[in-house]
Amino acid sequence: MGLIDLIFGRKKVFNHPYLGNFTSQRINNNNSLKTYYWIGDTCLVNNNGDEFATSLFINGNTNSPYNNQLSFISELVQNWKKRLLFKN
């Protein structure tokens, strides 16, 4: 553990089966009541079939993003892709 990790904490990685990896801000303790932000990336497709990388910023605790936010974003991304497929 380096000096910066000791002072500011470490970043953690959470792997979601559909959305992929989320990386936390630096977490310095195990206070599960404190809220941290987690950042992930996904790819969205427009009506022309062009893909766009999109960053996802969600809240969570020391272990992972909050389940209700993961569920909502997963549903949003899945419906985004399905909706565009049926519009053409």
Rank of each mutant, 00 (worst) to 15 (best):
Y37T: 12
G60M: 03
L56A: 04
R10S: 14
N63D: 15
N48C: 05
T42S: 08
G20M: 08
N29W: 03
R10M: 06
N61F: 03
L33E: 08
L33W: 06
N59M: 10
N63S: 14
N67Y: 04
T23R: 10
V45D: 04
F57W: 02
G60C: 06
T54H: 06
L33N: 12
V13D: 07
Y37Q: 06
N29I: 03
S24T: 02
W38K: 01
T54Y: 08
D41M: 03
L56Q: 02
S24W: 03
G40A: 04
G20R: 11
L56Y: 02
T23W: 04
L3P: 01
N46K: 08
K12G: 02
L44M: 13
Q25H: 06
N30M: 08
R26K: 15
N59H: 11
G49C: 09
I7H: 02
N30R: 07
S24K: 07
E51M: 12
K11C: 07
L44V: 15
N63F: 12
L19E: 11
N48D: 13
Y18G: 00
K12Q: 07
G9S: 11
H16C: 02
G9E: 07
I4T: 10
N28E: 12
Y66M: 05
Y36W: 11
S55C: 05
Y18V: 15
L33H: 07
G2S: 14
R26C: 07
K12I: 10
L44F: 06
F14K: 01
N48Y: 14
S55Y: 05
A53C: 04
S32K: 11
N31K: 10
H16E: 03
G40R: 00
N30F: 04
G9L: 08
V13R: 13
N48W: 10
G9W: 02
L33F: 10
N63Q: 12
F52L: 09
N31W: 02
R10Q: 14
L3Q: 11
H16Q: 08
S64L: 04
N15Y: 06
D50T: 11
F8Y: 13
